[in-house]
Amino acid sequence: MTSPRSILLQGVAFAVLATLSWACNFIAPYVLQGYSIQDFMLVRFMMAGALGLLLLPLYRSQLRGLSLRQWLTGMGLGALGYLAYSSCIAGGVIYGGPLMIAAFIGAVPVLQALLGNARDRALRWGQLLLPISLLCLGLGLINLQVLRDPADAHTYLWAGLAFSLGAVLIWLSFSVFNQAAMEHLHTRATGAWTCLMMIGAGLAALLLTPMAWAWDWLQLPVQGIDTPAALRLYGWALLIALLSSVIGAWAWNLASRRLPMVLSGQLIALESFFATVLGLAFHGRLPTLAEAIGLVLILFGTVYSVRIILGPRRSETCRPAVH
């Protein structure tokens, strides 16, 4: 029989894989090859939907146990947590820069930990004080330059803030609803659930394409759909779809089964860490001293949160809802 501690460790590993995969969302604005972000998002999620359709027959036995309501819920969560969230991420990167959006997304663990503990009371509130304080301080240091000198994005700063805030609200909503839905899902239906999310995001992208075309948001019809630049765009869209929509969602759904929400909320901080590193890499620079300290504090706060959850006194209290 698998011990509760082993289950939690598996959940942590899956959450790390998911956050690393999701951090690839942040590189989308850097690989547009002259096309618009709308081109990239619609292509990427239609590819994700197609992948979901291709993979769905592998889970026929799982699908038989799902009700129509669960089918619709899974697809709706895909449109929310995939397309809407990733679009806000891209908008935040474009208008606010990679560090601003990463810092905002990094605030999610603080809010989600509070929501999760209010719901499940896995920990005493005092135990969350230190890790949450470390996360807040680290996020503040990462975003210090933006707060001190917003001249880099004077014109579009408010748009960046709006997209960043939207990403936070969407992710919190998605996380709460998805974890609640997973509690009523058969333990072996994770693969089918992931496919339904991908299909939902793909359908939403397909439905939005005529509107984007009518409003002249798309460059593919103008610049050509078979140029070398377009082929590179397709390649990046497929790669990010595989990493974020397939591997990321699959790993996160497995993590959600093994972790209490208070811990999964803390581990989301790693997405901010990975995203910041990727953003700096695409900008071709090293982090400043404040940014480096902030990254270390985020990592330390996350590791400390895991240590609290895995403590021997809490192993029974923090047993995940679904085994």
Rank of each mutant, 00 (worst) to 15 (best):
L147N: 13
H186I: 06
G74I: 08
A181P: 00
L141M: 13
S175Q: 11
L58F: 13
G140A: 14
A167N: 07
G74L: 12
I94A: 12
N143P: 02
L114P: 01
L134H: 06
Y95K: 04
L172H: 07
A118H: 12
R119G: 07
G140N: 12
I170M: 12
G138W: 07
A118E: 08
A192E: 01
D149V: 11
P57Q: 04
L130W: 12
L123A: 10
A118M: 12
W71S: 12
R60I: 02
L185K: 06
L83V: 09
L99Y: 09
L144T: 07
M100A: 10
L115M: 11
W71K: 11
L68K: 14
V93I: 15
Y82D: 04
R124H: 14
D120V: 13
L172D: 06
P98R: 08
V110W: 00
G81M: 06
D152I: 04
G91V: 06
L185F: 12
A181D: 03
M100T: 07
G65K: 07
L68S: 14
Q62A: 15
L77M: 13
S67I: 11
Y156N: 01
F174P: 02
H186M: 11
M198P: 11
A151C: 05
M75V: 13
L115S: 04
Q127G: 09
V176I: 15
F177P: 04
S61L: 07
